[in-house]
């Protein structure tokens, strides 16, 4: 059966009196390219934080690969196969690029079992990102695009089933956006499920098979990129008409 990889049921998250998410449902299929969009402050990042475990949702539940993960801590979710990149890169600054990748390899992918050649595996991932020349550079010496790529590489090193890419392309040039899109497409072809959060419409519309639109913490539309483009509610949310 074509099971969903991720099911988010009626998730609500409040901060004090403010409701950042109100009973949102998301269903992401195995090996899908899924887009999550919405205006600023619509709750996209809160949604990701709830899925990855950085925040605990107040209501609703989250099921991943058939298992209810609503109450388990973030690090265990990563071990189960959910990895994310951060919108603002958060590298491990005292380590080299290679060492950065060894953390998720060791902790999430292999769960510190002995005798695994971590560095070799890390190099393979860097090759995929065409960053092998930066392997022994400390993260302080990286450019903005390299930091973004490191974010993705590090998330990949957790060997996830589901990759959540949180605005990996903001502030990048067109060719750089295409670079990253190409990487994500290739990973998806190898079986990875991808949730893309993005402001760059060109990227998310080209990439996604299905898109959900959030506005003010609620789901206002869901469908193929074509359906979303022609949706009146979406237009209103974005243009504020």
């Amino acid at each position: 059966m074509a099971e969903n990889l991720l099911d988010v049921h009626g998730v609500t998250k409040r901060f004090g009196g403010f409701s950042a998410l109100t009973r949102v449902d998301l269903h992401v299929k195995e090996n899908e390219r899924f887009g999550l969009i919405g205006p600023n402050g619509s709750g996209k990042t809160t949604m990701i934080n709830c899925i990855s475990g950085a925040l605990a949702n107040d209501e609703g539940n989250i099921v991943f690969a058939g298992r209810d993960i609503t109450r388990i801590p973030a690090y265990q979710r990563t071990r189960l196969g959910i990895a994310r990149s951060f919108q603002i890169p958060k590298p491990f600054v005292s380590m080299t690029v290679l060492e950065n990748l060894c953390i998720p390899l060791e902790y999430a992918a292999h769960q510190h079992s002995h005798g695994v050649e971590l560095r070799g595996e890390a190099m393979e991932i860097l090759e995929l990102m065409s960053m092998t020349d930066k392997a022994d550079v400390r993260t302080g010496g990286l450019t903005q695009i390299e930091l973004r790529k490191l974010e993705l590489a590090r998330a990949m090193a957790a060997k996830p089933k589901l990759l959540i890419s949180d605005e990996a392309m903001a502030g990048l040039s067109n060719t750089e956006v295409d670079d990253i899109l190409e990487i994500l497409v290739r990973l998806n072809e190898e079986g990875l499920t991808v949730i893309m959060i993005e402001h760059i419409m060109r990227a998310v519309m080209n990439f996604s098979e299905r898109i959900v639109v959030l506005d003010a913490g609620e789901k206002i539309a869901e469908g193929t990129p074509d359906e979303i483009v022609n949706n009146k509610d979406v237009e209103r949310a974005y243009l504020g008409a």
Binding site: A74, R84, V93, I103, A108
Partner: peptide, 25 residues
């Protein structure tokens, strides 16, 4: 050891460490 490498990740960025599978607490 792996414990020390995890600790270093916590020191560098706790949020990222947890998301990379490090049991921070």
């Amino acid at each position: 050891s792996w414990v020390g490498r995890g600790m270093a990740a916590i020191r560098d960025n706790e949020e990222a460490a947890e998301c990379m599978g490090v049991p921070i607490l």
